[in-house]
Amino acid sequence: MRNLVTFIWKHSFFALFLILESVCMYLVVQNNNFQRASFINSSNQVSASVLTTSKNIEDYFLLKDENEKLATENAQLRAHLKESISAIVNDLDSSKTEYIDPIKKTIYRQKYTYTSAKVVNNSTNRRNNFLTLNKGSKQGVKKNMAVITNTGVVGQVKEVSENFCTVMSLLHSATTINVLLKKDGSFGPLHWDGEDFSFATLSDIPTHVKLIQGDTVVTSPYSTTFPENIMIGTVDSYVQESRKPFFTVKVKLSTEFKKLTYVYIVNNMLKEEQETLENKSETDKKE
């Protein structure tokens, strides 16, 4: 303590200067609006930037939960899309002449529901590629359901266990998807030739179609598995097959198979109804 007092006494000039200068600064900041505002402002900026940095770091630890939440929410939102609803159907008996509530008269029928799933295993470098997802029969996943992401088509569910399912990727020799050109509706089958995981081949496009690089290719409405209008990719290049009036189109896939993390499993609720009906007419033909 005595040392401190001697120290201050020794440097009394400097100490006095500091005291007086602090008094002045106090007066400046207290009594001048501009200086006060910018003092408070800059001190707020310092504290805010520290807090923002720490929050940014903290957010990284919550990213996983946050992603899962978002994926689930997206799946729910997708169910509300126009494409997920089959039509405005009139399920009420129209022969009745009595007054029917105009709102009850038209009922939307849900056609597609979506389940978000995380990719737990993935491959792109084989001829026949599969994915494994962390949703299974317990979560309502069934065979042959479609799997998509927000950027495009992924594949089709192949096998289902209790909590997992395997997906036959679009990058599989047995996968063929019916697709169409968005601009004029000409359609054809799409398959993967096994070379580059970002390109697939679309055949049987008639030669009268004027193709331009960058034309959008989407899923066709004739498929019972995939919802219509799901992005497949864009036209990259095309060649005419020898002595056939068809183009073979190289399609750049919009799905980045290397980067898949969250996907949606699509459940077509009207699939069975449609397939039973179609099978019935098939058998009729044979008879």
Binding site: L20, M25, Y26, V28, N32
Partner: peptide, 9 residues
């Protein structure tokens, strides 16, 4: 308030 005194000190 304070500005001139700070400079003078």
């Amino acid at each position: 308030a304070g500005m001139h005194s700070a400079a003078c000190v």
